[in-house]
Design a binder for these strands. Structure first.
Lengths: 335, 335
DNA sequence: TTGTAGGCGTTATCAG
DNA sequence: CTGATAACGCCTACAA
């Protein structure tokens, strides 16, 4: 009969009892199997297997300086961008034996604050954030925790600590200039769910249009972006601006919805209406014409963010605490 | 100067020192502000604010039976289905003051095993899983932990504990019968990333086709589903089966990609080719004709899963440990 | 209303 | 190579 503790979970003591040693030896074996006698090690391994022992993170969180876990905050669980970012992060953290605690906050600063408090309660050694806007209390909590932080995706002007991102204003400026160079004159910006990146892209759009002496047309909504929402935005834009000949969209979901709607209305893309997206999702390759979009290196941003964070945790010198990972404009045919 | 402990994080002792009381009183205040004198409470609140004290989960994980956290495992971070499931779960857990620890495993049983071990190391009180296939070691770990488990999304024949899902075989059977009733005779099943739900839907497809005396056409790939992958699948299917007049897809991503590709090839949907999807994502409403799909109540499944789990944690009697949440076939026009 | 003592599971440290 | 002891931060139980 297997003895269990109050929590009904197997402890190192149970393993030690089974083998007839002290938990100290079992503990040593777990961290470094060669630190105990080969014979003892074998018995311990067998007991662990037999009892189904699972590590307990609590004591480490309680007593050690490091919990060997980092927290990652993403705005949304259904966005391929952040999925790729997380995969990039985990490619690095796994290789270094770090746990990744994931939390999402639905693009809400106060929700972010609560999730960060929860992650800090789990004693994470570092944080990777994906927004550049934080509540004062969030900033205070992070300061108090005294842990390294990476803000990923953007290049915020007043970073908390380290930054790995790209210049969304510049990328938007460049791609809108391409649209203007194609002869488009009445271009609208379609924005949804007004998060910080949506605003940066709008700034880039505004800069390009203003520089060309063209009017600014903004069609914005606070709703979560979706394909069907895009159709509504286009209908609205065409009603107000019948001469509309181009749309720069804050993301590919909006862009695809706009493109499909335009084609349903009998508009030729890009001749009658240019449509440009952002993020270069796969679906942009499945429509005709292929979608012109801004490709962002989110996997690489994740990797670099994790590398910077772990380097700082190891106390290594960081060459640059602000890293611009750049972007690429895809050669679509929709602009 | 604020005193900090070894971990450099503020503890209740720091708060108590600041006020000139013992940490016990501060602890009491946190759990129930009315348990201490009003004046003391005010001072404690002020000190907590001033020092930026954040709860530490470690002692609770270490000493109490309950960590007030549950673990949730999802296969993918970029799938709206699981995003909705998680939102449903959190709607319930938040209301009950439970933390949700999220992990993803990329549709890989062994990755799932590792993530479950990690969640158990964090002393979660319960688990919500989204797959019905688990490694033997996963099952053993869960048994050893002795915590309640909900398997969500499917109705597995040999459940670990509780189940909240729907009958994918029946849903697929029904929708394929609709295609047959529309006069389609040469229908293919498009499957990607062969997870358990893909297989269940294929079984439903097979059942319907066999019952109608029609041939089984399977076009499968182990790749992650995407719009552009769907185009390849359709090209392949048409090459092998020139008389193809219908496609039942394992999900809407594949279905939309198939529909767009069919239209690019000049095929009329549904007259030349019927296309039916699964999950009823928003994009199905943005294409013409609107996509016929199977709508699954994933938010409600999340809610119900969390409710069952918390009820069991409270020791309440559960009426039924297997809950079928049903499905609905959308009235699209693509079949 | 507030304080004291002890314990949760693991590991650093020091002994053997 | 292995063992004993103390410590981590909080909470339960008991005491004042």
């Amino acid at each position: 009969m297997i003895k269990k503790n109050k929590n009904n979970r197997i402890t190192l003591q149970d393993v030690a009892n089974q083998v007839g040693i002290t938990k100290m030896t079992a503990s040593r074996y777990l961290r470094n199997p060669k630190a105990v006698a080969a014979k003892t090690g074998e018995k311990i391994a067998q007991a662990i297997e037999e009892l189904g022992y699972i590590e307990n993170k609590a004591p480490a969180m309680l007593s050690k300086a490091s919990s060997r876990a980092i927290g990652v905050l993403i705005p949304s669980l259904s966005n391929q961008i952040f999925s790729a970012l997380v995969h990039g992060i985990e490619a690095v953290t796994k290789a270094h034996g770090y746990e990744t605690l994931l939390a999402h906050f639905s693009y809400d600063e106060h929700e972010e604050e609560q999730r960060i408090a929860a992650l800090l309660a789990y004693q994470v050694d570092g944080l990777i954030l994906t927004a550049s806007q934080h509540t004062p209390r969030t900033l205070q909590m992070i300061r108090n925790a005294g842990i390294p932080v990476v803000e990923a995706m953007e290049l915020p002007p007043n970073p908390i600590d380290m930054v790995v991102g790209l210049d969304h204003i510049q990328a938007s400026f460049e791609v809108v200039n391409m649209m203007i160079a194609s002869g488009k004159r009445s271009i609208a910006y379609f924005g949804a769910r007004l998060d910080s990146r949506t605003k940066l892209r709008m700034t880039g759009f505004d800069n390009a249009m203003t520089a060309a002496g063209l009017p600014l047309i903004h069609v914005l909504t606070g709703e979560h972006s979706s394909y069907s929402l895009a159709a509504k935005l286009l209908d609205q834009a065409l009603a107000q601006h019948p001469t509309l000949d181009g749309v720069f969209c804050t993301n590919d979901d909006i862009a695809i919805g706009t493109l499909l709607r335009a084609q349903q209305l009998g508009l030729k893309v890009p001749d009658d209406l240019a449509v440009v997206g952002y993020n270069a999702l796969d679906i942009g390759q499945s429509v005709l014409p292929k979608l012109t979009s801004v490709d962002t290196p989110r996997f690489a941003i994740g990797q670099k963010s994790a590398e910077l964070l772990l380097a700082k945790l190891r106390g290594e010198a960081i060459e640059s605490t602000i890293v611009d990972m750049g972007y690429r404009i895809t050669d679509g045919a929709s602009h």
